[in-house]
Design a protein around this nucleic acid. Sequence first.
DNA 1: CTAACTCCCTGATAGC
DNA 2: TGCTATCAGGGAGTTA
Length: 274
Amino acid sequence: MPELPEVEVVRQGLAPLVCGRTVFKVVCSGPRLRLPVPRARLNALVAGHRIEAIDRRAKYLLFTMSGGAVLIIHLGMSGRLGLFPAAAPRAKHDHLRFVFDHGMEMRFNDTRRFGSVQVLTAAEMKEQYPFAGLGPEPLGRKFSAAYLLNMARQRRQPVKNFLMDSRVVVGIGNIYANEILFAAGILPTTPAGAVDLPAWRRIVAATRFILKNAIACGGTTIADYVNASGESGYFQLELKVYGRNGLPCPVCRQPIQKKVLAGRSSFFCPRCQH
DNA sequence: CTAACTCCCTGATAGC
DNA sequence: TGCTATCAGGGAGTTA
């Protein structure tokens, strides 16, 4: 799936194209996504309203509509969001079309249907804030070495899985967790509670550097991610360990090793990471 | 409580 | 060629 950088690239690409535009109608087709598609709310609270802003929280895209409702889209593993001419041929797994008033439409395509679409009213956003349980943004001020040291106390979970826990910090998925730990020189299997303050500082610095760089590169493309303009990102050219099992470490030439942790493939250099 | 496992779904790829 | 098994960027719910 798109991790934080890919979602942010979609947000940045889409915002200038659709902000200020009015959604003429919403067309839903096909089966349910991870959550049922809220057709009635899409018709009542999104259709007929203008997109005021697009924000991002974790890996969720938040479209604030005139009228105050918020359209929340998660891309799951294989979701894409792009703007197309209304007459452009539709693709397999195009599940929703947001038809604008200027001959264009935003299409949500999701092969695996792990994505989700929700619509919350302004009151619901306030009263039952849907993201209350989520940890801080990794590019925000609350994400610090001291915070991580405190959160990780007593935890024996591998540091890689700890970084992928959205209650700890949001937006870091399997690709970037591997890359961050390589850059920080820490083995993914290290118990989170055993990581010391200097090591957390390296993790925080690596996280900021790698995520910002990935956003600047337009994200990572593995198989099916494209940004809002339909172009591929090129951060995959920068991947140092992810998917490189058996290939030489770019720093020391030792073969990169792979180990499955909590069901997710983990890649590391046995010589550069301790 | 923590952490690992299971499942949702389609498609690409590897191996026979 | 065609079959089966495995794997894939997420996240919620269940199990131990």
